[in-house]
């Protein structure tokens, strides 16, 4: 027997990242913009998707991939009920979507007939941050009642974002939430991050978010 040390230096997320690249190329070939929507449970992911569809359809053709850890179709049913194609991915207890699951979700959607795909990740602030799905934007919803300390407690997820949505602004008068402290944490982790304060209940702020998507879709068609 001889003993040997073999240098490797290989990123542990490589396999996922390669599939993510394939997803991204496939979406780009079809002229589709995809958004990875992340948040903790109850922050308003499905509500934001429904509000977004309400603002942008039918001028934009939108598909939705719903990630859930349990085989329940509550979220997918809500999207289907407003007439949009939706695919449910049951992660079988896994706490996040990965690029392979999304690739299967893409198989089930009519890509050539879509402009935008919104992927609702599993409600979780830790695990989804580690997995690139091959989308064009990582979007996080932070909601006011969750508290202003979340950037400090979950720094990873804030690092990889292109857009931050602060939801439930209508609850601000009733909840202790120090916006300056929250924004300071975000600024350290992700300087200049595009941020949209919204309320999915009142519809406040949704149009600014919808405009951002429209620009992104228009740029992808060029």
């Amino acid at each position: 027997m001889t003993y040997q040390r073999v240098p490797v230096v290989e990123n542990i997320m490589n396999a996922n990242d390669q599939v993510a690249q394939l997803n991204r190329r496939r979406l780009e070939n079809a002229g589709v913009v995809a958004i990875n929507l992340m948040a903790s449970p109850g922050a308003g992911k499905t509500s934001l998707i429904l509000q977004t569809i309400h603002s942008l359809a039918p001028s934009l053709r939108i598909g939705v991939i719903e990630g859930d850890t349990a085989p329940v179709t509550i979220d997918a049913d809500k999207v289907l009920s407003v007439g949009m194609p939706a695919v449910q991915i049951n992660t079988g207890g896994e706490c996040h979507l990965d690029a392979v699951m999304v690739s299967k979700g893409l198989d089930a959607l009519p890509l050539e007939e879509l402009d935008l795909i919104i992927i609702e990740n599993v409600g979780n602030l830790i695990c989804p941050a580690a997995f690139d799905l091959g989308t064009h934007a990582n979007v996080l919803i932070a909601s006011i009642p969750e508290g202003d300390d979340k950037p400090y407690k979950y720094p990873n997820i804030y690092r990889g974002l292109q857009v931050l949505i602060i939801n439930k602004t209508d609850l601000a008068p009733y909840v202790k939430f120090n916006m300056d402290y929250f924004r300071q944490g975000v600024e350290i982790l992700n300087p200049g991050l595009i941020t949209f304060p919204v309320s999915c209940t009142t519809g406040e702020g949704i149009s600014a978010w919808a405009s951002w998507i429209k620009e992104k879709v228009a740029a992808a068609k060029k």
Binding site: M1, Y3, Q4, R5, V6, V8, V9, E10, N11, I12
Partner: peptide, 17 residues
């Protein structure tokens, strides 16, 4: 933010090497 496999340590049989 690093996250990688730096190296592995292995045993090889004399014959194969």
């Amino acid at each position: 933010e690093e996250f990688y496999v730096d190296s592995i340590e292995i045993e090889t049989l004399e014959e194969t090497s």
